[in-house]
Structure formats: structure tokens, C-alpha cells
Design a protein around this nucleic acid. Structure first.
Ligand SMILES: Nc1ccn([C@H]2C[C@H](O)[C@@H](COP(=O)(O)OP(=O)(O)OP(=O)(O)O)O2)c(=O)n1
Ligand SMILES: [Mn+2]
Ligand SMILES: [Mn+2]
Length: 549
DNA sequence: CGGGGCAGCT
DNA sequence: AGCTGCC
């Protein structure tokens, strides 16, 4: 397995990765990147425990319909699995308490606040969200700038665990970079705990993939550092290529078809071995990933490009029921759009039809239709979480007409899912971003609105028992207040000493470091190139060559 | 599989 | 519009 071409131990091997477009800028110093990955512990369950502290001592899980999506660590300590079916888990563990987590509103809010806290830390050069509970943080510039001269004895201790600690060498500049990273990771986790009362796990490594993988080594409320020389050792602990982020089920299936079953197989593979199933770029990237090489940059996450809601139910068979469900979904979505502050230009409806699925012999078949929506219809959401009656029914009618494009009401159908999403928000250009921070211009910005103080889980249309959300232990307790007063968003203190006097410190505090740098330099914002996802299977050799017809 | 999201291709 | 990826 030891490929003589591949220098496993070389700390900088990932920096020399070949690649054309979207990779990171060349290392100026010869020092490695320092990347931190933060993953909240049993995220949904923790949010529920913050809301109901009495749950902390109980084995508890968060459920969505017939699925337990996550369990808290009290439960896991008793051997209860992290997830599973309600049926199986309650049978095996009658003591398990279940909380309804079908409405993601609170999780979304905490997720946003975590991102804000992390982004406000001045050493965070770039912060990229992944899902609701993960963030990658690039702290390379800060670390390189604070690395003391090689001759000096660096007193900075390592925080948390070191994977295979025996190989630690405090005189190695690469090790000291990562040690500084571990200190920053500890500071981030402390801030998240202080500001939000949530614990998290962190990984510190020279790239995103390794940071994420090593963070899993010591899990609740702890952190782990990976030295580059221990990369192979870490990868050897992985049970399958599927364990690598970026290798999903489809890619894994393709690899199996090629006879690549283990990570070692993939590490030893040549691009030519993978050429049947993947294009060259993808093949190269897969092999590199299997070797712990990942040059993908930490992209600064902006605001979401789409906001959507779905609900599944036993069955809906009439246009009337659909209308009721869409109304309910829209009511919740309107609140989210209001809080976002931007007005979308496209609205989309998604649906699942059991009959169509069976007719086509598919296990699941989600359809969607979208349309532009006239600007004036939604402008009310800029100032109000509810639309006026007329506009609201216009929106619902638009949704129904979109549904009509998928469903023939004169033929039998059985809907089991309905969703509404919005997208195509007005672009925030570099020039307007400059204006955006001038503290005087608040009225014209696409500003975030204050969220509801208490989000009462809105009960879905209750005419039909089948459409109810799954029962919740505290269902009766929750007040049914609608959108209420602003809740103060915990804006963390941070360094605002150096910004121009007419810029809004609050906004500044929530900016990633690289954006701040660009603004200070009065440079136009340069949008980062997107990283191409891995699993682009070429349809055929032919289509690979016919670049464009 | 289940369930409720998000992003990036095609 | 649909698929695949991530959580
Ligand atoms: N297929 C999935 C995976 C996760 N989640 C949600 C529920 C989790 O609480 C949250 C974060 O996912 P994680 O994989 O990080 O799992 P947890 O945070 O729950 O547990 P852990 O402590 O192992 O990170 O995302 C989800 O809805 N669907
Ligand atoms: Mn996670
Ligand atoms: Mn997590």
C-alpha cells in the first residue's frame, strides 16, 4: 500500500495537490493551513434541553413522524442508539422520552446564532456552514501571524486531545501551528457554550476533511488535533470509503462496482482504474480524498439561497385538503421570509404522489414546479410577518396552480408530502455591500428582522387527524402566541476598534474576517469559486469528450 | 427506509 | 426539474 509516489508523512503533501480551478491559493510560507471543524453535540436534542432543562437528566430523543432523528447523550450512555424508528426504540427502551422536532424553527435560529458567534471571532478568516450544526473555520492567517520565531520555546500548550499523541514534537513549526489552532478551537467552543449554552466537538487539522474526521475521535464536548504525520493512522481507523465526507451512497456503489471495497483499495487506485465510472477530475479528487488530501477552501457562507418547508402526512386526496395544508405551510414560511428580510422572486411547490410512485415503480418520487412571483405580492413581508389577506390568498392560489401542474384532479391521486420553497433573492453586490454597512441606511437594506420571542409550534390544519404532527410531551404547555416581539439577539462582544466610524459595529461583528479585510481594503468583494462536488459520474465516455455540442 | 432541511450540478 | 451530496 505504501505508494512510493505518495508521501504520506509529509506535512505539506496536501498543499501541493494538483488541480486547476477552485483550489486554495498557494501556501505563501510553507506552513500548513489550519482548519477547525465544529460539530454541535446531539444538536436538536441539545436545543430541546436548553428549552426544557428538566430533559437534561432524562434519556431523550427528537422525533419527526415515525423517526427518531437524534438522541441526547444521557440516552446514548445507556446504550440507546443515536437514531432509529420510533417503533423499535420505544419498544426496546420504554424509558426514552420523545420530543417532536418536526418544526425546525428553533434549530434554525440556534444554527444562525452559532454561525454568528463563530464568525464574530476575530481570528476566523472564513467560516463555512455545513448543515445546521457544523462550521468549518479557516484560522490560517492568524496562526501564521502569531507563530513565534522557531528558535524560541513556544509556551502555547495544546488544548484537548492529540490523535496519537506520542508523535508530538513541540519544535516542529507545523505542530505548533496546529497547537495554536487547538487553542482557538477551545476559545470558539467556550464562546458557543457561554453565549448559547451548547456544547460541541471540534477537530483541528490541515484541511476540512481531516478536521471533520478527527473531530469525531473524542465526542461529546471535547476536541482532537490531527498531526499531518498521523493522517494515514487516522484513515486506517475508518471502516469504509463511505466514511469519508464526499463519498455518498451513489459514489460508494460505483466504487463497489469497480471492485473497490476498502479505503486501501481506493488509496492505491489509479485514475485510470476509476475512468469507467468517473470523469478524470472526480477520479483524482476521490483518490486524493482517500489519502487525506483535500485542497478545497473554506468558503464563506452567505445567507441561504433558498428557504423551504415540507410536511409529510398519511394522505391527501382533494384540492381542498391541499389548500389547507399549503395555507398552513405558507403561514410558517412567511414568518421565515420576514425574519430573513429579503423578498424572493421565485416560489416552488413540491409534492409526492403515492399513485404516481407505484405507477412508475419508484420507491419515492418527488416532483416540483416553480414560478416567478410578482414583486408586489410579497413586499408586505418586508415589514410584517403576515401578508394582507388579499396577497396571502394570491400566494396560496399560485401554490395551488403549481400543484395543478403536477396533479390531475379528475384522476385519483394520493399526496403524501407537500412543500413550499422560495428562492432567487435579490443579489447583494459588492457595491451595495459597501453601502450596507453605513449605519444610516438601515431602512433600505435587506435587513434581518427580529425573530419571534416564543415560537409556538403552530398546529397544522386539524380537520384531518391524519395531518396532525406527531404528539409532543409538552404539547399542551406551549403557548399558541403568534409572531410576537423582538427577542434580543445575543451579539457577542468583539473587536470593533479598527472600523471606520460610520460603519455599523453590529453588522461588522457578524462579518467573517476575510470580508472585513476586503472591506477595509476597499476592494470589491470577490466571490469565491464553488467547489465542484465529487460525485459527478460521467454518463459515458462519449459524453465526456463532447464537451459541448 | 424513515423525515425536514440546505447546496451544487445537469 | 430532478438528482446527489451534506446534516
Ligand atoms: N440525516 C440527518 C442527520 C442529522 N440531522 C439533524 C439532526 C441532528 O441533531 C443534526 C446534526 O446532525 P449530526 O449528524 O451532527 O448528529 P447530532 O448532532 O445529533 O449528534 P452528534 O453528537 O453525534 O453530532 O442534524 C437530520 O435531520 N437528518
Ligand atoms: Mn453534524
Ligand atoms: Mn452534531
Amino acid at each position: 500500500m505504501s505508494d512510493d509516489e505518495t508521501d504520506w508523512g509529509a506535512s505539506l503533501s496536501e498543499l501541493s495537490a494538483v488541480g486547476h480551478a477552485p483550489l486554495i491559493p498557494p501556501p505563501p510560507s510553507g506552513l500548513p493551513r489550519v482548519i477547525i471543524h465544529i460539530d454541535l453535540d446531539c444538536f436538536y436534542a441539545q436545543v430541546e434541553m436548553v428549552r426544557q432543562p428538566a430533559l437534561r437528566s432524562q434519556p431523550m430523543g427528537v422525533r419527526q413522524k415515525q423517526m427518531v432523528i437524534t438522541t441526547n447523550y444521557t440516552a446514548r450512555a445507556r446504550g440507546i442508539p443515536k437514531s432509529g424508528s420510533v417503533q423499535a426504540l420505544t419498544q426496546a427502551y420504554p424509558e426514552l422520552i420523545l420530543v417532536n422536532g418536526e418544526d425546525l424553527y428553533e434549530y434554525r435560529r440556534f444554527s444562525q446564532r452559532i454561525f454568528e458567534v463563530v464568525s464574530s471571532m476575530t481570528f476566523a478568516h472564513a467560516v463555512e456552514r455545513l448543515g445546521m450544526d457544523e462550521n468549518f473555520i479557516d484560522v490560517t492567517p492568524w496562526v501564521h501571524a502569531h507563530l513565534s520565531a522557531p528558535a524560541e520555546i513556544d509556551p502555547s500548550p495544546v488544548q484537548g486531545h492529540v490523535f496519537q499523541a506520542a508523535s508530538w514534537d513541540k519544535s516542529d513549526p507545523v505542530h505548533r501551528c496546529l497547537a495554536l489552532g487547538s487553542v482557538l478551537a477551545q476559545r470558539i467552543r467556550t464562546r458557543i457554550r457561554e453565549e448559547l449554552g451548547l456544547t460541541s466537538a471540534a477537530g483541528i487539522a490541515v484541511n476540512k476533511t481531516l478536521a471533520k474526521l478527527v473531530g469525531g475521535c473524542h465526542k461529546p464536548d471535547d476536541q482532537t488535533l490531527l498531526l499531518p504525520d498521523q493522517t494515514l493512522a487516522l484513515l486506517q481507523t475508518l471502516p469504509s470509503p463511505r466514511s469519508i465526507p464526499g463519498i455518498g451512497s451513489a459514489t460508494h456503489a460505483s466504487l463497489l462496482e469497480l471492485g473497490i471495497d476498502t479505503l486501501a483499495d481506493l488509496q492505491a487506485a489509479q485514475v485510470s482504474n476509476l475512468a469507467e465510472m468517473f470523469d478524470r477530475e472526480t477520479a483524482e479528487r476521490l483518490i486524493q480524498l482517500s489519502q487525506g488530501i483535500d485542497p478545497s477552501p473554506v468558503k464563506t457562507s452567505g445567507r441561504p439561497q433558498s428557504i423551504g418547508l415540507e410536511d409529510r402526512f398519511k394522505v391527501i386526496t382533494t384540492r381542498d385538503e391541499s389548500k389547507t395544508k399549503l395555507k398552513w405551510l405558507w403561514g410558517r414560511l412567511a414568518q421565515l421570509i420576514y425574519e430573513d428580510g429579503r423578498i424572493p422572486r421565485v416560489i416552488r411547490v413540491t409534492a409526492r404522489d403515492q399513485i404516481k410512485e407505484r405507477a412508475q415503480g419508484r420507491r419515492w418520487l418527488k416532483e416540483s414546479r416553480q414560478t416567478q412571483i410578482a414583486g408586489h405580492i410579497l413586499t408586505g413581508l418586508k415589514t410584517n410577518p403576515d401578508l394582507p389577506q388579499r396577497e396571502e390568498s394570491q400566494v396560496v392560489d399560485i401554490c395551488l396552480s403549481l400543484l395543478d401542474k403536477m396533479v390531475n384532479h379528475s384522476a385519483p391521486y394520493q399526496l403524501t408530502l407537500l412543500g413550499i420553497g422560495v428562492s432567487d433573492f435579490p443579489p447583494e453586490t459588492a457595491n451595495t455591500i459597501q453601502n450596507y454597512f453605513v449605519a444610516g441606511a438601515k431602512e433600505t437594506r435587506n435587513e434581518k428582522r427580529q425573530p419571534k420571542r416564543s415560537h409556538a409550534a403552530m398546529t397544522p390544519p386539524n380537520e384531518e387527524a391524519m395531518c396532525q404532527p406527531t404528539p409532543d410531551i409538552d404539547e399542551a404547555i406551549r403557548p399558541c402566541s403568534k409572531k410576537v416581539k423582538p427577542a434580543p439577539l445575543a451579539i457577542p462582544v468583539c473587536d470593533v476598534s479598527d472600523i471606520p466610524h460610520d460603519w455599523d459595529p453590529e453588522v461588522w461583528a457578524n462579518l467573517p474576517m476575510d470580508i472585513r479585510t476586503e472591506l477595509l481594503a476597499s476592494q470589491p468583494i470577490q466571490s469565491r469559486t464553488n467547489v465542484k462536488p465529487l460525485n459527478k459520474k460521467t454518463k459515458s465516455i462519449a459524453s465526456y469528450f463532447q464537451k459541448k455540442s
